[in-house]
Amino acid sequence: MEVYLDNNATTMVDPEVFKAMEPFFCTIYGNPNSLHKFGAGTHPKMVEALNYLYEGINAADEDDIIITANATESNNTVIKGVWVDKILNGNKNHIITSEVEHPSITAVCKFLETQGVSVTYLTVNEEGILDAQQVKDAIREDTALVSIMWANNETGKIFPIAEIGAVCKEAGIPFHTDATQAIGKVPVNVQACNVTYLSFSAHKFHGPKGVGGLYVQKGYELTPLLHGGEQMGGHRAGTVDVASMVGMGLAMHLATKPEALEFENTEVKRLRDKLEDAILELPETVVIGGKDNRTPNTTLISIRGVEGESMLWDMNQKTIGASTGSACASEDLEANPVMNAFGSDSELAHTGVRFSLSRFTTEEQIDYAIEVIKNAVKRLRTISSSYAYTPKHHVSEL
């Protein structure tokens, strides 16, 4: 049996989405910017896709949604655009973010620091979150942007976006959130949360890879990351991938319907909890960040005495896919930075395994995964030169 439990890295394309995309490869293939009927033939489905995107995040009609290649491009567009507009060409020189952001945020901020920009990296508590007061306390007169993710890609922890948005609105500072891991798992409402910019990727909610979006609130402009033609109203040059745009729109629609979100927060959560509880029956195991305030599909579990990479190897031999954290950092063998940020000790920081489910995960798959995982832990602990179980270190005391 094959079991895919790495849906925070990417998801399978929903078959309904794939079917909707097919005509745009060989039948309705015109360039949407061309004036002839071949180009115009793409427009109805593009409009429908945009409407789905607006509805999915409750954007207002006068706001913009720019089609990008992925959330990484969207994140870069926001931060580098603010750098050009507010820092190089303005009187601001400060950005606020958190220490557990996706690498497409932290790497850009580290780059901007080499250019003289001041960046504040807010710390998270032992539960892996921060509060709006930390943001308020960090704001300075020269703060140009606050960028805090909606939900963490490794732990699933949900941040207080509405409260942070209110703080930023009161201070008159643009607020960006990377909602890549939130869409399709929890309700996302840009108007209610006072969001200025929001990033997302289609492949995280059963859409195609290679396409994403950037929401921009009315009244805010950004210097484009890509210059060239006048596509996307001049905000992002390059011929639009119509098939992917159509797929992303439908995927957004399917993932954000009330009944879909209800399924995530009941059935997907139930299966996640079943897997999690079974692993926690093993001694010296712990959910990083705790069980509260998470997306319903995600758990990051530390298994003392078992290297995360070794655990993945054993599971892979039994055709189960999981992760030690962000796929974007999977080649980095250093201790998990998110677990370090939570205050995990050096040994524990190497033992985290992330399991992330989807609406296509079945009970049979979870039952099989539980059996394999328990056997793998037993085997790996038996051959470990450093692990020796003692009751005083049981999970209840960690």
Rank of each mutant, 00 (worst) to 15 (best):
M339S: 14
E309A: 14
E363K: 08
A376K: 05
M339H: 11
V306W: 03
E364K: 14
F342Y: 15
Q317A: 13
G343M: 13
D314P: 04
A322Y: 06
T351I: 00
E364N: 10
G325E: 02
V372G: 04
V377C: 01
L333E: 09
K374R: 14
N375C: 03
S344N: 06
T362L: 10
D345C: 07
L312R: 09
S310E: 07
K318H: 10
A369D: 00
R359D: 03
L312V: 10
T319W: 06
A341C: 11
L357E: 01
F355V: 05
E331T: 09
R379F: 13
I320L: 11
S326T: 01
R379I: 09
D332H: 09
R379C: 09
R379L: 12
I320V: 12
N336D: 10
S330V: 14
S330R: 13
P337E: 15
I303Y: 00
R379D: 15
L380P: 05
E334G: 15
G321V: 15
D314N: 09
E363Y: 07
C328Q: 06
R304L: 04
H350D: 01
I320C: 06
G325V: 04
S330Q: 12
N375Y: 02
S346H: 04
L357S: 06
D314E: 15
N336A: 06
V353S: 02
N340F: 02
V377W: 01
F360Q: 14
F342R: 04
L380G: 03
T324E: 02
Q365T: 00
G352S: 07
L357Y: 06
G325S: 07
L333Q: 10
E347F: 11
S323A: 14
D332N: 12
T351P: 00
V377R: 05
T324Y: 09
Q365Y: 01
G352D: 08
S323Q: 11
S326V: 01
G308I: 03
V306K: 03
I370Q: 04
G308Y: 05
N340Q: 14
F360N: 11
I301Q: 02
K318M: 07
N316R: 12
A327T: 13
D332W: 11
A322G: 05
L300D: 09
K318Q: 13
V306D: 02
N340P: 02
R304E: 02
V377P: 00
S323W: 03
G308Q: 03
D332R: 04
N375K: 11
L380A: 00
A376C: 12
M315D: 05
K374I: 04
Y368D: 00
V372F: 10
V338H: 12
A322V: 03
G325M: 10
L300V: 03
N375S: 08
R354N: 15
L380C: 10
Q365H: 04
S346G: 00
L300A: 15
H350R: 07
R379N: 15
F360V: 13
E364H: 08
S356E: 00
I366L: 04
W313Q: 14
E309H: 13
T324K: 14
F342T: 07
N316P: 13
M339L: 15
E331D: 02
Y368W: 01
E309C: 05
S346K: 10
K378W: 03
